[in-house]
Design a protein around this nucleic acid. Structure first.
Length: 586
RNA sequence: GCCCCGGUAGCUCAGUAGGAUAGAGCAACCGCCUCCUAAGCGGUAGGUCGCAGGUUCGAAUCCUGCCCGGGGCACCA
């Protein structure tokens, strides 16, 4: 309907261009909006106000000319000019009921759009280091990314969900070392855990697994392992230097092969945990992309060569630097350290180049807000490689802070006292967790109230929406118990019986769903869907309280059932995109 | 110091590429279950949209400056 109105107005503008009211080559983006106020009809167009200046006449006057030039359309019931020069359209009941018809006919496909036209999008999200279980901060990225992926897919994009696995580098070495130290403990050695070691319980778990597989073959006396180390941070030394020394010693004592074994066991265990965790959260991936593979295949070296050939690399202080400041970054960045190893940033350049070369014209990265300083350098790298930085859309997601009542929950992976995503799921349930995470726009800090998420009350928006769905299901159960049946075709023939204000509003809300999918997808804002669903549920509850659906009159009854079943379909579809279930009963 | 995000009702937040009288939920107060699940509904009350300028037919929305809160500024990942 929105599109139809747009084309009607476009034709009117052309017409005025031909008769000289407007400049002949007038170009304007015609904005058709849902009227916020019922008194303003169903749709509003502001074109007259936008073009008033060019036309050299008052907005209302131009609006009148436009209206006069509008072609007739059977879906339009009335046109009025209001306010400063809005053209308000009222659509016919028949056109409005089409939403109910479509929702029932299209079912799960209702709301799907061709907006994306099959364009391939690579959506990378979570990508947490596999150094431990996901915590609640990652949960927001998972819920947001998962919902955005579904939303974009519903809007007609070909979405590829990807997790970038940081399976190389220092942090993973530290994890492997931490596992080995716990293993030594498990074998009866007593030693002091470094400040910077990973100390969560899961490390002990991996250590036990290691002991189970390797027995005491990896055992070394604690005195040897801990001999002549520098001072640790808490001892007045440098904790980074301390842990690095220990990592090096670990590699030496174990030998490259055994160390690689410990490393791999730690990686596989943690990654499997993450994968299971996300799957239970309703988030799945098309690809788990290994950072290490970029080094193994030489992709990192190739990327650096390309930068070098283009003259964007230079040496200083024994390291190789990328001249990112020439491409909008605040300073240059190291891509190869003085010890010869490439940096994480170098891998990231290769990774993003790889994504583009795999044929994704558009890439979306979902990052934690703490990585925002990293954005300019990645864009700089793409620019330096003659790629359009617009192709990489980086969405930053702010922190989620957990509260239990008024108590703020602490979080720190290193100390091991974080609240894991798994714990959160088990506490409040996956449905509530996913909804709460996407309810707020991503730029907004999220106060996640555990008590509220768990409460089975009207305070809780998840249950409110799910309840609307369950109530409709329950009506059908009641219907059968009363020995009645529903004839959808008959209902369809009598949709015009739905004239109550509660009914027309619900019809209108259902009709808005496809528009909302496009809007939310375009803006990459799943929270719009969450808010819409709350509104839709509100219409359902209001209607439910105001009117009986299972009335005597079979025509009216069938029509009402068509309406609420259409609403149920939209709730189901919408919740599905957010990864929230739509229970039949509660 | 520089960069990013936020500042809208007592609280938590929406506000759809600047649009008509700024909206929800919670909390507060008043009502509604012999009737399809009260995990619900109706009503009342609640606002200098952080502050000051600017842009224009029109600004919570765009621009500039300032104030407050959160985060980030590694040869870590």
């Amino acid at each position: 309907m929105k599109e139809k109105l747009r084309s009607l107005v476009a034709r009117a503008v052309d017409q005025l261009g031909r008769d000289g009211t407007l400049p002949a080559d007038t170009q304007v983006e015609i904005q058709v909006e849902r009227a916020r106020d019922k008194g303003h009809g169903d749709y509003a167009v502001n074109t007259a106000m936008v073009l008033a200046k060019q036309a050299g006449m008052k907005p209302r006057e131009l609006a009148e000319r436009l209206v006069a030039a509008l072609p007739d359309d059977p879906g339009v019931a009335g046109i009025t000019i209001a306010g400063p020069g809005f053209i308000n359209f009222e659509i016919t009941q028949e056109a409005a009921y089409a939403a109910v018809r479509d929702a029932l006919a299209e079912g799960a496909a209702y709301g799907r759009s061709k907006l994306g036209a099959g364009q391939r999008i690579n959506l990378e999200f979570v990508s947490a280091n596999p150094t431990g279980p996901l915590h609640v901060g990652h949960g927001r990225g998972a819920a947001f990314g998962g919902a955005l992926a579904s939303l974009l897919a519903a809007a007609g994009y070909d979405v590829h969900r990807e997790y970038y696995v940081n399976d190389a580098g220092r942090q993973m070495d530290i994890l492997a070392t931490s596992v080995w130290l716990r293993y030594l403990e498990h074998q009866g050695e007593s030693l002091r855990l470094p400040d910077n070691a990973y100390r969560g319980d899961y490390v002990r778990g991996i250590a036990r697994k290691l002991a189970g597989e390797k027995g005491d073959t990896l055992l070394q006396p604690a005195e040897v392992v801990m001999a002549e180390l520098p001072l640790d941070g808490s001892e007045g030394g440098d904790k980074e230097e301390y842990i690095d020394t220990l990592v090096t010693r670990c590699k030496t004592l174990l030998g490259p092969e055994a160390f690689a074994g410990v490393f791999q066991l730690a990686l596989d265990t943690v990654l499997e945990d993450i994968r299971d965790d996300l799957a239970a959260f309703g988030v799945t991936y098309d690809e788990w992309f290994s950072e290490r593979s970029l080094t193994d295949t030489g992709a990192v070296e190739r990327a650096l060569e390309r930068l070098d050939e283009a003259g964007h690399l230079y040496e200083a202080d024994g390291a190789v630097w990328f001249r990112s400041s020439a491409f909008g970054d605040e300073k240059d960045r190291v891509v190869r350290r003085d010890n010869g190893a490439t940096t994480y940033f170098a891998s990231d350049i290769a990774y993003h180049l790889d994504k583009l070369e795999r044929g994704y014209g558009h890439c979306i990265d979902v990052w934690g807000a703490d990585h925002h300083g990293y954005v300019p350098r990645v864009h700089a790298a793409l620019r330096a490689l003659d790629r359009d930085p617009e192709q990489l859309d980086i969405r930053l997601v702010q922190f989620a802070i957990l509260y239990r009542g008024s108590e703020r929950m602490p979080m720190s992976t290193r100390s091991g006292q974080f609240v894991t995503l798994r714990e959160l799921r088990e506490d409040v349930g996956a449905d509530a967790a996913r909804f709460f995470y996407v309810m707020r726009k991503p730029e907004q800090h999220l106060d996640f109230d555990l008590e509220l998420a768990k409460s089975e009350s009207s305070d809780n928006p998840v249950y409110y929406i799910q309840y609307a769905h369950a109530r409709i299901c329950s009506v059908l159960v009641q219907m059968r118990e009363k020995g009645l049946s529903h004839d959808p075709d008959n209902g369809d023939r009598h949709l015009t019986r739905l004239t109550e204000s509660h009914e027309t509003e619900l019809v209108s809300a259902i009709g808005r769903y496809p528009e909302l999918i496009e809007l939310a997808a375009r803006a990459r804002e799943p929270h719009q869907l969450a808010h819409y669903l709350r509104e839709l549920a509100s219409h359902v509850h209001t209607y439910y309280n105001a009117h009986q659906f299972l009335v005597e009159d079979p025509d009216l009854r069938d029509a009402r059932l068509n309406l609420v079943l259409a609403a149920r379909q939209v709730i189901r579809n919408g919740l599905g995109l957010l990864g929230v279930s739509a229970p039949e009963a509660m």
